[in-house]
Amino acid sequence: MIKIKLTRTINGKSLTEELQEEYGSMKKLEGIIEEKGNMKLESDLEDWEYFLEHPEEEYTQEVIIYDEKPSFSMTDLEILDLLKNEKPKSITELANMMNKDSGNIAKQVNKLKEKGFITIEEKKINNIKTPIFSYDKIEIAI
């Protein structure tokens, strides 16, 4: 098995801004926890409280993927690069940027999603699927 590590580092301030965007306010998050508390929500609150006090501190988020047969094509790398730097709002927009058929690009995007490299944000309005890749670094250990 080959180990692939995806990393992104953000500071405490950016993390608290992300949490603010996700939950609205700390009070709202506390309310949600009271209603249907779970470990993930509690962990978010714990981070929010901590990084509010430590805005300059770095927070590294890592995902380690163990892949039996890792394979990256140039198209995969181009997709990751465009998602990271151009942030297309949909798979169609991504395919247009690459001058490729959106059906084929959708297949590639799904493959990358299944492997854990990207996430897909689904908007209820218009059923738009936005692929997201937000890591700074991919390390492959051999």
């Binding site: 995806l6 962990s43 501190e57 927070y59 590294t60 890592e62 995902v63 993927i65 854990g116 996430t119």
Partner: peptide, 19 residues
């Protein structure tokens, strides 16, 4: 936190000076 779906589970991870 980073979110990863695997085998029907969602795995969140995070790392900082705290641990």
């Amino acid at each position: 936190m980073i979110k990863l779906k695997k085998y029907g589970k969602i795995i969140y991870t995070g790392k900082s000076i705290r641990g």
